[in-house]
Design a protein around this nucleic acid. Structure first.
Length: 487
RNA sequence: GGUCGGGUGGCCGAGUGGCUAGGCAGAGGUCUGCAAAACCUUUUACAGCGGUUCGAAUCCGCUUCCGACCUCCA
C-alpha cells in the first residue's frame, strides 16, 4: 500500500502525511445535500471532489467506508427558532407532503451524481431515519453538562464548552470577534449565550415534520445529525470528515463541539474542505440565484451558455482544478475542457488498437507512472495528474502514427496505467461511444466512403463526410483506416 | 469591521527559491486528393513597490484589487 499520501488538514492548516487510525480501513464522512431543491453544479463539485478522493484511497488499497448523509429533516432557515422549515415551505409551494419533497429531490440528486459517474457511498443515512440516535446524543450532551433545555428546546452551551475546549479550532477565529459579530440577544431569546445553538427544537403547532422526545414534540437542530450518524457508522473517532468550505465555520465547528462534549475526543483526524465553484468570480449559490442546474448545463439551456456540455466533459473540467481552489465557470473554460476531454478519450480509444513491437523507443512508462502517483499523493492533485496523462496521450498518438514504438511490457504497462488513472481514479468514461448497432452502421458507411475514395470519386466521399459532420460525427482518416467520433 | 484565501501568458488552471506544468486558443511545418485528426516547432506570464538572496514569479514587508466565511447554502 502506498504510504506517501499527504493531504491538507483544515484542523492544522497544513499538509499532513495520511495515517489512518486503523489501516487498512478508512472511515470517511462527507456532508451531503439538503434535499429540498435541485442540486446545482456547485454542490456537484464537492461530491465529484470527494468521489476522486474515495476512488484514489480505494485504488491505493484502503478499505474505505464512505458515509454521506441525506439531510431530509426539517431544519429552519436560520440557526435559531425563527423562520420556516425548508421542507414545509417547499411542500406548501409545490403542494406536496414534505416527504414527497424529500423523495423527489433525493432521486434527482442520485440521478445527477450517476450522470457524473460518482461511485455511491458505502452508507447513505438520512436524518429522519436517525432521530433516536440524535435524541440519544442530545441526552448525553445534557448529561455531560454542555447543554440545557428551555421550554422544550435544547441549546448547546458554548460558553461552558469554551472553558475546556477550543471552539474555534477549525477556523482559527477569535472568540471575542465571534461574540462581537453575533447578534445581540433580544429579550425573548431563550438562549443563555449568544453563540449557543439549538440541538433540539420545540415544534410549533404548524410545524409538520415532528418527533416525540424527552423534551416534548420537536425536531433536531441542524448540526446534530452529522455528529450522530458519523459516530454511529464510523465510530466516535474516524479518519476523514469532509464537506464544502462553506460548512467549516458554523456546521463543522458545531459538529466538533457536539462530539467533543459527548465523547471527549476529536471526531475526525483529518478535516477536508472543498472550494467553491464560482461564476464571474462569485460563488455559485442557491440564494444568490446564480446557480446552474446540471440539466441546464447538459442541454445548454442556461442563458449564459452557448451550448450544452456532457456530464463527463464537466467532470473533466472540475478535475482540471485542484479541489481546494475556486473554479470559475465560463463558456470558454468549458469549451477548452470539453476539447481536452475528447482528446484524452480519443487516445483511450486508440490504446487497444496499438501493437507492440520488439523494441521500445525511449518511452519510460514506469517514470510516467511514478509521476502520476506523485501527483495524487500530493493532496489529490488531479490537475497535475491530468497534465501527466496528456504526456501519455502524446505517446499513444505517436505510437498509433508509427512515430515511436512500444515493446510488449511497456504497452501493457501503459494500458494498465491509463485504465487505472483515467477510469479508476478520475472516474472518466467515454460518453461518446454508440451502441453496437451504431458501431456496425458506421463501419458500413465508412467502407462505402473508402470505396468511393479508392475510385477517386471524391464528390461522393466528401458528401458522406460532410453529411456525417452535419449530424455531429467527425471522420479522421489515417494510414490504418478511418476513425470517427461524435463532436 | 474580524478571520481566511487569492491576484500566473488571449481563456481555464498547476507549480516552484535557479530546470518546458497541462488543456484550449494563436502562428509555422509534416502528413493528406482535400479536410479533419495526429505529430513537430513556436509567440504571449507570474498585480504594484520595496527588502532578504549569488539568484524570487516562488520567502518577508507594504500598497492595491478580488473573493469566501462570520446569516440558510457543497
Amino acid at each position: 500500500m502506498d504510504n506517501r499520501l499527504v493531504l491538507y488538514n483544515t484542523l492544522t492548516r497544513k499538509k499532513e502525511k495520511f495515517e489512518p487510525l486503523n489501516p487498512p480501513f478508512v472511515g470517511m464522512y462527507v456532508c451531503g445535500p439538503t434535499v429540498y431543491s435541485d442540486v446545482h453544479l456547485g454542490n456537484c463539485r464537492t461530491f465529484v471532489s470527494f468521489d476522486l478522493i474515495f476512488r484514489y484511497l480505494t485504488h491505493l488499497g484502503y478499505k474505505v467506508r464512505y458515509v454521506r448523509n441525506i439531510t431530509d429533516a426539517g431544519h429552519l432557515e436560520g440557526d435559531n427558532d425563527e423562520g420556516d422549515d425548508k421542507f414545509a415551505k417547499k411542500a406548501k409551494l409545490e403542494r406536496l407532503e414534505p416527504m414527497e419533497i424529500v423523495q423527489k429531490y433525493t432521486l434527482g440528486f442520485h440521478e445527477v451524481l450517476r450522470l457524473f459517474n460518482t461511485l455511491p457511498p458505502s452508507i447513505e443515512p438520512t436524518a429522519t431515519g436517525h432521530i433516536s440516535e440524535q435524541i440519544e446524543m442530545v441526552k448525553k450532551i445534557i448529561e455531560q453538562g454542555y447543554a440545557y433545555e428551555v421550554n422544550g428546546t435544547v441549546y448547546f452551551d458554548v460558553e461552558k464548552y469554551v472553558k475546556e475546549y477550543d471552539y474555534t479550532i477549525l477556523t482559527n477565529r477569535k472568540l471575542d470577534d465571534l461574540l462581537n459579530n453575533t447578534r445581540e440577544l433580544n429579550g425573548q431569546d431563550e438562549k443563555r449565550g449568544r453563540l449557543d445553538f439549538a440541538l433540539w427544537i420545540k415544534a410549533k403547532p404548524e410545524h409538520i415534520m415532528r418527533w416525540p422526545s424527552p423534551w416534548g414534540v420537536g425536531f433536531p437542530g441542524w448540526h446534530i445529525e452529522c455528529s450522530a450518524m458519523s459516530s454511529k457508522y464510523l465510530g466516535d473517532q474516524f479518519d476523514i470528515h469532509g464537506g464544502g468550505m462553506d460548512l467549516a465555520a458554523t456546521h463543522h465547528t458545531n459538529e466538533i463541539a457536539q462530539s467533543q462534549a459527548c465523547n471527549h475526543m476529536q471526531p475526525a483526524k483529518y478535516w477536508m474542505h472543498t472550494n467553491m465553484l464560482t461564476v464571474n468570480g462569485t460563488r455559485m449559490s442557491k440564494s444568490a440565484g446564480n446557480g446552474f442546474l446540471p440539466h441546464e448545463l447538459f442541454s445548454g439551456s442556461h442563458p449564459l451558455l452557448e451550448r450544452g456540455y456532457s456530464p463527463m466533459a464537466v467532470r473533466f473540467f472540475m478535475l482540471q482544478a485542484h479541489y481546494r481552489s475556486t473554479l470559475d465557470f465560463s463558456n470558454e473554460a468549458l469549451e477548452a475542457a470539453d476539447k481536452g476531454y475528447r482528446r484524452l478519450m480519443n487516445a483511450m480509444a486508440l490504446l487497444p488498437k496499438l501493437n507492440a513491437t520488439a523494441k521500445n523507443t525511449e518511452i519510460k512508462v514506469d517514470e510516467l507512472k511514478a509521476r502520476c502517483y506523485a501527483a495524487m499523493d500530493d493532496d489529490f492533485n488531479s490537475p497535475v495528474l491530468i497534465a501527466e496523462l496528456f504526456d501519455a496521450v502524446r505517446i499513444i498518438n505517436s505510437a498509433y502514427d508509427g512515430k515511436l514504438t512500444l515493446d510488449e511490457p511497456s504497452l501493457v504497462s501503459l494500458r494498465t496505467l491509463m485504465q487505472d488513472f483515467v477510469h479508476g481514479v478520475l472516474g472518466l468514461v467515454d460518453d461518446n461511444t454508440g451502441s453496437d448497432d451504431f458501431e456496425k452502421l458506421m463501419d458500413v458507411v465508412i467502407s462505402l466512403r473508402n470505396e468511393a475514395k479508392h475510385s477517386k470519386d471524391y464528390t461522393t466521399s466528401d458528401r458522406i463526410r460532410e453529411g456525417l459532420s452535419s449530424i455531429g460525427i467527425q471522420l479522421k482518416d489515417s494510414k490504418d483506416g478511418t476513425l470517427w467520433n461524435k463532436i
